[in-house]
Each structure stands twice: as C-alpha cells, then as structure tokens.
Design a protein around this nucleic acid. Structure first.
Lengths: 348, 348
DNA sequence: GTGAAAGCGCTAACAG
DNA sequence: CTGTTAGCGCTTTCAC
C-alpha cells in the first residue's frame, strides 16, 4: 500500500551517479556522457520513474498549468472553446485547470482568488462582466506578477490585455443586410447583455445595417435579452403579439435562438414560411433536426486555440512586450433559407 | 514588472514573528496568541499574501488537484458531468485538472502518463474503453500509489475501483416495457458500443423487456450503434427501409436520438404519429424545440457530484478500506407521447 | 562531464 | 505559545 513514487535520489543511487546528472538526463540539458546517460535511463525504466512536477515547479518558479475560467460549461459555445484550448495546451505540454463561474460575479472573484495560490503559468478567461472593477483589478494583478492573461470573446474595459474576439459587428451587419435585401422591413433583434462586448457589438451591427439601408429604428423591435433561453422566449412571444409584428427576428446567440424557436413553435409559426429568423452562432443540433436556420457562424474551437496560442507567445517573448494584442477572427454568414421573406420562400 | 508574490518570510519579518507562527496562523493550526495572530493577519493583508500551494504540496506530499478525464467535452452529457464534479470540488477546496481524450485510447494513455507527473489527490475518469489493458494497468498503478480512482458511467473489467453508474438496464427495461404496453410489437434498438457498460446494459434491458413480455427477438431490429449521430442516422434509415419496419425505435443515448430524428425528418416520418421513439438521456434542446420525446432520464450533474463525493470519502477514510464502492443512481422514465403507437396517438 | 550544495516556499516535529 | 530546523524533490550555479 502507498508504494511511493521513486524520486531522483533513488534513480541516482541505482545508476551510480549524482542527482545532478539524473536531472541533466531527464531534462536533456547539458552534455552527459553516453555511459551515464544509459545508466540513468535504465534506472528510470526500471523504477518507472516520472519526475515530480510539483517539486520542479517550486524549484524553477514556473509551471505548466494554465487557468481557464468559463462562465458556463454547459453552453456548447464554451465547451467548444474549451476543446480548442485543451487541444493546443496538450500539444504543447500544458494542462488546464478548469474553473466554472456559472455567470456569477462572486464566484468569479473567488475563483480568481484561489487561482493566486497556484503557480499558474497563464490565464484564459471569459469574464462574467466586462465592467466589474474587482475582476479587472485581479486580472491586472496577475499581469503584474508576470502571469499573462488572455480574454476570450468578452473583454474588459481595458486595452491592457491580450484578447481573442470575432468580428461580430460585421457578421450581424451582413446578416441583417441580407434580411433587408430579401425584402424584410420590420426586423427585430433580441439582444445580449449590454455589459458584454458580444451583446453590444451584435447590436451595433444591427443598427448599422438599418442605417445604411435607410430603415428607421423601431425601438419596440429591439428587445433586451440575456443570452438565455427563457428571456428570449418571452421576448419573442412579446414581439409576435405586437400589432405590427416583425417579419424577421435576429437572435443574438445560440441560446437566444432556442428561445425564439420555442416561441415560434408554440405559436405555430413556421420559420422561413411565417417568419424569418437568423441567429448568431451555429447550432449542430438544429442541423440534425433539419431546422435550416441561417446563422452568423464562426470557428469556435479555433478561438480557443488562438487564445492558447496567444498565451504561448507571451511565454516565449520573455517578459518582452506588454500585452494588448487583439486577435480578431472572422465570422461567416451561412444562408439556409430561414432568412427568407414570409410567403416568398416556403421550405418545401 | 515581475513584482514577486510575497512569501512566508516577508510576512514573518513584517509581523515580527517566526515563519512557523505565520504558518500556524494561515493554517488555523495550533493555538496562536491573540497578539501574534493580529500582527500576522495585518502583514498578510498589507502584502496581499496568499500561500504558495506548490510549496505546500511539496512539503505535505499532498495536493488539492484532482484529475478529470473525459472522452468528449462537447457531448452535453459529459459537460453536465463536469459541472457536477467542479461544483462539489469547488465547495470542498479542490480543483479540477481537465483532460479530454476525444474517445481516443492513445490519447488516454498519454494523458494518464502525464498525470503521473502531478501530485494528484485523486482521479475521476470515464475510460474510452472498458477493456483496454494499458489503461487498466495505469489506473491500478494510481491506486497503488495511494491515488484513488473513481470510474464514471463506464467501468473497466475490474471490481477494484470505486464507480458511479446508473440503473440503465432497469431504465431501458421500463421504457421498452412501456412501448410494449401501448401496443408495439416490432421494436428496434440502436445500441451503443458493446465494449462499454452503458451500451451493454441498455441492450440487456431491451432483451429482458422483450423476454418478459414473450416477444421474440428479431436480430434485424437490433442495430449496432456507436453513440454517434452519423451511425445512428444510417441505422435508422436502414431500419425504415426494411420490408417490415419497426413501429418503435429505442435509441441508446442522446447523440443516437439526434441521429434517429435526423433520419425520421428526412423520411418525413412524424415521431409519435408515424413512428415511436424513446431515447436514453434527456435533451434540453429537444424540449425547447417542442419535440416531446420520451426518455429514460437521469440526474447527470448528480452523477458527477457523487463521483467527487466518493473521492472525498476515500480521502477521509485515511488509507482505510480498499476501493470497490459502487454507487448506482436511479433512472426515470419520462413519458411525453413519443412512445405512442402510430395512429393511436397523434400529438395534436 | 560530473558532483556538492544552496535554494524554491512551506510544513511539522521538536525544543524551549 | 513560539522559534529552530530539517526536510519535500528538483534545478542550478559553481568548482573540480
């Protein structure tokens, strides 16, 4: 029971060399004689030795763990992000410490606090709020301590950090422009939280499209959402109950799209026939279910990968430049028919 | 730049006490005089001191990190599991090191190997295969080293580990029995991989239900699946193309359900009207989309919580008993109409 | 090319 | 109640 892992001393003894030599061998550092090398490797194999990364961390004052802070693992968007992050982290020998804030600011502060105990090599975070001063202070603190921070999808009120975002404004602009092009004039949007970059940018794209096409802004068509199903559902019901309901709805994220569809289904409205719908972020499940919803799509795992790559870059540029890089990935408008004007484009 | 974190020596100096006293204060161990306590706390606040967990780990030969090995973060089932795990881990001061094997045995071995470098306190794993000898050997190895392992949902060919499973056989038995009760006689199943407990158990439940109701087993109605959408889709198409197609299909997991629905949609079959469908594991999205699919449901986050709790139990029972606990959570049959006999139960 | 020795920051006896 | 000291396992000068 409790058979301990072998340590560097046992390997050294077995190989008849000093621990320094063992260390050199397992780190491929310096030159070691052919003979010592072989003897050490034999001992390593014999004892199935694996160096203790905790000790190594303490000794080198560095680590291979990166902290990943996500607001909701169960949202497919974030799990895709996570997939991208872990993919390149793995490839490069880093490990992911996962923290779930559940969109809760207090949890976020707590998480950021406990993260300080760990010798993290870097941090990737999608902050709950972009305006939370406490979170911002803590993140700055990490940077000050030499722990790089990368913001993912959401930003904070600071140009100080590296961040990975997408061209949401342009994507939504393209989508809404297309709605206008096919003939829509009464276009609603269910927004995201104003406190978040994605929410703001997507709304901006909507405004710009209307403006550029000379359409008036109808405040009642702009419904506040929170990126959650329930709220989107309620707002959609409200939209459809209007005297002059919109002919098209733009939904600002994947959950919002579900909420819209839920309401449409309940009202017996067929998307692409009775009402148009375009959403932000693609949803695999909808494709399987033969819902041909047009969406502003982006390569989500790639966003995660980029975030991790940005971090790696910071590691390599030895304390060189300050942060502030901004990776902006493109969006793509995928037209599948749900954008068509009612009566002009029945699905079958 | 690189302003270092304060260490215990600086706090001791500032407070005018020894590092031992500081250690006592921050660990709430032993008794410390009111005065020392206050002086230390003041210093801690002044320097915003947080103890270095790496040093602590090395010193105590223990850690608060648990390794979680998951085959596919993007499957909602696993992200729900993860949510449960992180929830109770957080509450109890543990952190999750996340590893994604992408259902790949080689990746799994690799992951298990790198996990040895870390001083993990425990491991929760849903193994890719239940029969992989290499994985099994490595897991045993962890146990031998005093690192408890909990198997989640899937098992391995060993009674040696703690594990959390659900009563799949019984759940499927209930579901298929219900199908029979409402009049179905030609009931197909799309199975999961035979190499996995869930796949096997669910098939067993199907067999038992048929047997107990005196229905013959029709081999052509038993289609091999792999818990993935594509395969389920193909198999469903094949089923529907039979001379005597089934009147009901049981799908063995969430992805399989999607595959079935995809095929049904493509063939223009309405679930609950033209064909019956019951699946294993509930799917939120389907509810939002007003698909009233009956399912064998279980509390997935609770499974994750239980796994973590089992681990905590092992930590506390100081090297006491050996592993082998088997937590079996119940399943529940949720009837929503999709199980009804064609023609006998139109949705509206 | 190799070994001795000094840490990394903290905990835990062991003396006072 | 408090301080001294010896590690935890590894890396890294610095001599030889």
């Amino acid at each position: 029971m409790g058979k301990q892992e072998a340590n560097i001393y046992e390997i050294a003894r077995e190989a008849g060399v000093s621990i320094a030599t063992v260390s050199r061998v397992i780190n491929h550092s310096n030159a070691v004689s052919e003979k010592s090398y072989r003897r050490v490797m034999d001992a390593v194999r014999k004892f199935n030795y694996v160096p203790n990364s905790t000790a190594r961390s303490l000794s080198t004052s560095t680590s291979t763990s990166i902290g990943v802070v996500i607001p909701d693992i169960n949202n497919p968007f974030f799990s895709l992000l996570l997939e991208g992050i872990t993919r390149v982290a793995d490839e490069r020998g880093y490990h992911v410490l996962l923290f779930n804030t559940a969109e809760n600011t207090d949890r976020e502060h707590q998480v950021l606090q406990t993260m300080r105990e760990h010798r993290l090599r870097g941090i990737i975070i999608t902050p709950v709020s972009e305006q939370d001063p406490d979170t911002m202070k803590r993140l700055h603190n990490f940077e000050t301590l030499g722990i790089p921070v990368v913001l993912l999808d959401r930003e904070v009120d600071s140009q100080f950090f590296d961040r990975v975002v997408t061209d949401d404004e342009r994507g939504v602009h393209a989508a809404v422009s297309e709605l206008i092009r096919v003939g829509h004039r009464r276009i609603a949007i269910i927004t995201g939280p104003e406190a978040s970059r994605p929410g703001r940018e997507r709304l901006r794209g909507y405004y710009r499209a209307l403006r550029e096409h000379g359409l008036p802004v109808t405040p009642a068509y702009i419904r506040k959402g929170d990126f959650m199903v329930d709220c989107a559902y309620e707002q959609t019901l409200a939209l459809c109950a209007m005297q002059e309901p919109p002919t098209a709805v733009f939904s600002s994220n994947n959950m919002t799209t579900y909420g819209c569809l839920k309401a449409f289904n309940e009202l017996g409205l067929r998307v692409g026939a009775d009402i148009a719908l375009v959403g932000f972020d693609d949803i695999d499940a909808l494709c399987w279910l033969d819902y041909n919803i047009s969406v502003v799509s982006r390569d989500v795992p790639e966003m995660g990968k980029q975030a991790m790559r940005l971090l790696l870059q910071r590691f390599e540029s030895e304390r060189g430049e300050r942060a502030g890089a901004r990776e902006c990935l493109p969006t793509e408008l995928l037209l599948r028919g749900s954008e068509l004007l009612p009566e002009s484009g029945r699905a079958h």
